[in-house]
Amino acid sequence: MQTSDWQPVLVLLVLVVAGVVLLHALSITVRAVREPLHTGPFSGGLEPREHPLSRFHVRWYPVTMVFLAFDMEMLFMYPWTKVVSAVGTTAVVEMFLFLGVLLAGVGYAWREGAFRWS
């Protein structure tokens, strides 16, 4: 059962990737001028002074930390959904205490202005 569940997924993956490759092939055969046009990046007609690839100023960096905490929490929450009534009240109390602690963290981050930038 387990393997046959995934079999269509695998077939589909192969199929879609083949579709992507076919589309590229189609585009190569039908395009008007085959060799690509080499050009600079667009910003309105003038050239930038440096290569745009750079260490990007990620001002929402603190949010990523808060997000990471919650993302970990989701790992617990998925399996938890399957056992709520089996385990009973304790499961609900524990999960929402945990979420409450994380929410307190969100509150703190909010007060510190982590969700505001610019």
């Binding site: 910003s43 309105g44 002074r49 750079s54 260490r55 990007f56 100023h57």
Partner: peptide, 13 residues
């Protein structure tokens, strides 16, 4: 201290 890019915007945008 961060990377700084000099980008012209316009005239045709």
């Amino acid at each position: 201290r961060l990377d700084r890019l000099h980008v012209p915007l316009g005239p045709a945008l």
